[in-house]
Simulated scan of single mutants.
Amino acid sequence: MSFEINQGLFQFGFTDNHAILGVRPDADFNTIRKRYMKIARRLHPDTCPFDDPRQKELGKQLLAKLVSPAYNQFSKENERREYELLLKTMGDRVVKEQHTMRLHGEAAAQLRTAGNFRQLYDTLLEERVEQEYESPEKALERIGEISELNLVYLLRSRQGSAPPPPPPPAKKPEPAQRPTPQPKVSFVDKACDRAAALAETQNYASAILELKDAVKREPNHPRCHGLLGSMYLKQKQPKLATPHIKKALQLDPAQPEALEAKKELDKMGGTSTGKGKTARNSKGGKKSDKGGGGLFGGLFGGGKKK
């Protein structure tokens, strides 16, 4: 069962865990934990109030695929810090791309131009949190509405208290031929494109955060692993790069980012192990470097143990 949300921060390919749990973007962990426990009791098949088997199964799926993963992101300190950094980056991006963002709900549009937006945000959020998981069938709709509020809240927080001018009225589209449907781009493909763009500005740390979130969604995506391995190499972390490059080439032997990263990794391995040379032992003798192959030799071939 797939849960796809295209409103609010989700439209930028960002998983809005605060919206999934129904908490403010600046909520502390104790608040997040209490909210998670309340939702878990509501959705868990042993404690949920749903009599309809379909509702009970949908609640179970929501808990397993959305709510618990969102809470796990906050419960581990390292992952929580990474997520907070990614959220900050997303806030900066929202400011730059505010003219392209889409708002579907009236509440978010109202918050967009409100004077005291912080007070209004709290009121609108509270109203939607109360109903977020009342009906499993409407949960995704409620999460999308909350994420729209979070999107506008992040934008307004970075712009200051003055409301921005309202957007110009949309022009009615002229009658035209029906456009050819474009192939749908997946969340992971979008994340890979964003990571590649970040790498061009040498923002490797943010690129790694994008890719780590994406690879959790789709563990067998060759380009995601290839890029992640390449980013770790840029950060001088060959040990972290190696398994991702290996995985990428297992999934797609012609994956370009992985092949390029493997060349760089082989060079690094050859330098550190003295590939093709001999090393002197502590007694002054020579010890041959048989079965070499650099840091990557043990993963992609090389001599066998006898």
Rank of each mutant, 00 (worst) to 15 (best):
M1N: 13
S2N: 12
Q7F: 00
Q7N: 10
G22I: 05
V23T: 07
V23Y: 09
D26Y: 14
D28H: 00
N30P: 00
I32N: 01
R54N: 15
G59R: 12
L63Q: 07
Q73R: 12
S75M: 03
E77L: 11
E77C: 00
Y83E: 02
V95G: 14
V95T: 10
H99C: 11
M101W: 02
E106N: 05
A109I: 05
G115K: 12
N116K: 13
Y121W: 08
E132W: 03
E134S: 04
E137P: 04
K138M: 07
R142D: 06
R142M: 12
S147R: 01
V152F: 12
S157H: 03
S161L: 11
P163Y: 02
P164A: 13
K172N: 11
Q177L: 02
T180D: 04
K184C: 09
F187Y: 08
V188T: 15
C192M: 02
C192R: 01
A199C: 08
A199G: 13
T201G: 02
I208C: 03
E210M: 13
A214N: 07
K216H: 08
L228T: 03
G229C: 10
M231K: 04
M231G: 02
T242G: 14
D252Q: 03
E257T: 13
E260K: 15
A261R: 10
E264F: 02
M268V: 05
G270R: 04
G270M: 05
K275P: 01
T278A: 11
R280P: 13
G294H: 04
G297H: 06
L299C: 04
